[in-house]
Amino acid sequence: MGVTRRQRALLVQTTLYVVLAAAVVALALVADWPVIRENFWNSGGIGWADGNWGDLITIGMVNTVKYTAIAFAGGLALGLVLALMRLSPVAPYRWLATAYVEFFRGLPALVVMIFMSTGLPIAFGWTPPGGTVGAGLIGLIMVAGAYMAETLRAGIQAVPKGQTEAARSLGMRPGATTVKVVLPQAFRIVIPPLTNEFVLLIKDTALLFLLGAAANERELTSVAKDFLTSGPSAGTATSLIQAALLYLAITLPLTQLVAWLERRQRKAVR
């Protein structure tokens, strides 16, 4: 009698666990923990009163949230205009919006941001408002708007045609129908993907670091980067680990929220 399928599966699983355990034990034994701690979680940087947390949170994290909110609001407004243009009965509006969306979705956000902060002043002698941060944010908004336009368009198109027909048959004008009947339902549909967009934007604000900013305008990544070479944990990677933790403190709850919203929506559809 040979082994049954069940027994074989059990054997494979046990082997996998044993290998994993061996790897963990080997790592724990081989690794030089004091050195790792020294370099990645340096005692100089992790103190609450005298460590890196102060600037990381009150400057970096606060600005990251602020810039994300600005980019999100701007991108949403731009995206809404573009989405409505793409669904417009007027063909040139559709062409313009399609061209815009395809163009900016095809470019790295960083290219657009550098163009706004450096390229424009060189080419036209005109600087967008708000300094490099303002210029970078405008670039971010231009790209985010293209993505959000697609999300919103999908949401608007997911509202059943009967809704528009009911509103129009009551005599409501196209504009009122859009604003009072279609958009409120479309926004509900796109809350999960828009929250995702928000998470992506949080991470994209780190690109602002490459444009440079005044000390109190720095976002989280910039502050962490500066702590690599200055401050109590200089010369170690501690500040980057701290920044990573702070990013996760914002993004993880949001991604969980998205998952929850999506589960709830799937249930509501059934």
């Binding site: 059943p160 009967g162 809704q163 027909e165 009911a166 509103a167 129009r168 048959s169 009551l170 005599g171 009947v181 339902q185």
Partner: peptide, 14 residues
């Protein structure tokens, strides 16, 4: 249209 009421098979309430 505002003087012509319409009722749909699928209700189409908001």
């Amino acid at each position: 249209r505002s003087r012509i009421g319409m009722v749909f098979q699928q209700f189409n309430l908001f």
